[in-house]
């Protein structure tokens, strides 16, 4: 991502921003609300056109606010749809890694808030993508789940995957390069 500027809602959020996430690396984007952390992730994912600059991105997986799992399906099959589109077979492993194995046959609409938050991370883990874009991955998680997320991120980075995370909380899972977005 080189020299990227972002214009949202009638104002300039940031400009001249360059960043690169190398394999095995973690980059933590921090800053107060409304500074464009989520927009930065959406630009990196290719969902949003930047006002200026260029973005090139390997295959990536995004966990944003939206759950994006079919609510009437059991969790395993809802995740399986995305895994099938990604051509990956990591759903059982992802369910296990986030402590969701016991909920595999529970319909998505019955999951609690915290379980749904873990489910959206399981969707990223199951994708097998080299680059993860995580928007506030720790919101609404209990301590055990935070530990699970830490383990999941360290394992991904140890395997040569990159992580770009936007969070106002301290993110575990190894050493992070930080990028501060401020006014």
């Amino acid at each position: 991502m080189v020299d990227v500027a972002c214009w949202r809602g009638g104002r300039l959020l940031f400009e001249g921003l360059s960043l690169r996430v190398a394999p095995g690396e973690g980059l933590w984007v921090r800053g107060p609300n409304g500074m464009g952390k989520s927009s930065l992730l959406r630009i990196a994912a290719g969902l949003l056109q930047p006002l200026g600059g260029t973005v090139s991105c390997s295959a990536c997986a995004l966990a944003d606010e939206a759950l994006a799992l079919d609510r009437e399906l059991p969790l395993r099959r809802a995740l399986g749809l995305w895994a099938a589109l990604d051509g990956s077979r990591h759903v059982p492993a992802a369910l296990g890694a986030l402590g969701l194995a016991a909920l595999a046959e529970v319909p998505v609409r019955l999951l609690s808030t915290g379980q749904a938050r873990r489910a959206r991370l399981a969707r990223v883990l199951a994708s097998g993508s080299p680059l993860w874009l995580l928007d506030e991955p720790l919101n609404g998680l209990d301590e055990a789940s935070v530990a699970a997320v830490a383990a999941m991120i360290s394992a991904h980075r140890a395997a040569g995957g990159g992580v770009l995370v936007a969070s106002h909380l301290e993110v575990p899972g190894g050493a992070w390069r930080t990028l501060e977005l401020a006014a």
């Binding site: 290719g46 995004l62 944003d64 606010e65 759950l67 994006a68 609510r71 589109l85 969707r123």
Partner: peptide, 14 residues
């Protein structure tokens, strides 16, 4: 759209 499914499809470059 509301549930982010369209975004996820777009991330996958479909």
């Amino acid at each position: 759209r509301a549930d982010g499914v369209l975004d996820q499809l777009a991330v996958r470059r479909i």
